[in-house]
């Protein structure tokens, strides 16, 4: 193929895909509107919602068990330059999955990569961490310590 593939490792791509799927849809929409040269694209797989079984290991290292089902929306897009972006996001927001896939495709393009990486991904990550912290703070305030009173003799 003629297009220039940006050099990135699988781990790097995993990281940005993770940030994209954990961001809020409005944030992604805002970032998308901010991109001046939007590529044309087609859907290889239109956004579709399904259920997946999340599996976990007891204590992180024990036997695998079915933790529970989760609603997931996935999407695959291909830009006209030939970059294919994929996304799997929690919930049923089709636009979120589409935008996450679009950004995944853009990030593989060396022409866009650095700009987007610095502008969007870093920002999204920060805001995600902020949200996480707020939730932790809120739940920390409701922390209850369990203890047993010793009955006086």
């Amino acid at each position: 193929m003629s297009f220039s593939r940006n050099s990135f490792t699988t781990e790097e791509r995993q990281k940005w895909m993770s940030v994209l799927s954990k961001s809020l849809c409005q944030e992604l929409e805002g970032a998308w509107q901010g991109i001046s040269e939007k590529p044309d694209y087609q859907h290889l797989r239109k956004p579709e919602t399904g259920i997946i079984m999340v599996r976990a290991r007891a204590g992180g290292s024990g036997l695998r068990f079915n933790f529970g089902e989760m609603t997931v929306t996935r999407c695959t897009v291909k830009t006209d330059e030939g970059y294919v972006g994929c996304a799997y996001v929690m919930g049923r927001d089709h636009r979120h999955a589409e935008l996450a896939a679009l950004f995944d495709a853009l990030l593989q393009n060396s022409g866009y990569n650095l700009k987007i990486l610095n502008m969007v991904i870093v920002k999204l990550k920060e805001s995600r961490e902020k949200r996480k912290e707020e939730i932790s703070k809120k739940s920390a305030a409701t922390k209850v310590d369990f203890f047993t009173m010793v009955r006086g003799e």
Binding site: Q42, L44, R45, K46, E48, T76, K78, V84, C86
Partner: peptide, 12 residues
């Protein structure tokens, strides 16, 4: 190989 992938049904 997704690079040569083409779409399926337009309205699945």
């Amino acid at each position: 190989n997704l690079n040569e992938m083409t779409p399926g049904f337009s309205d699945p």
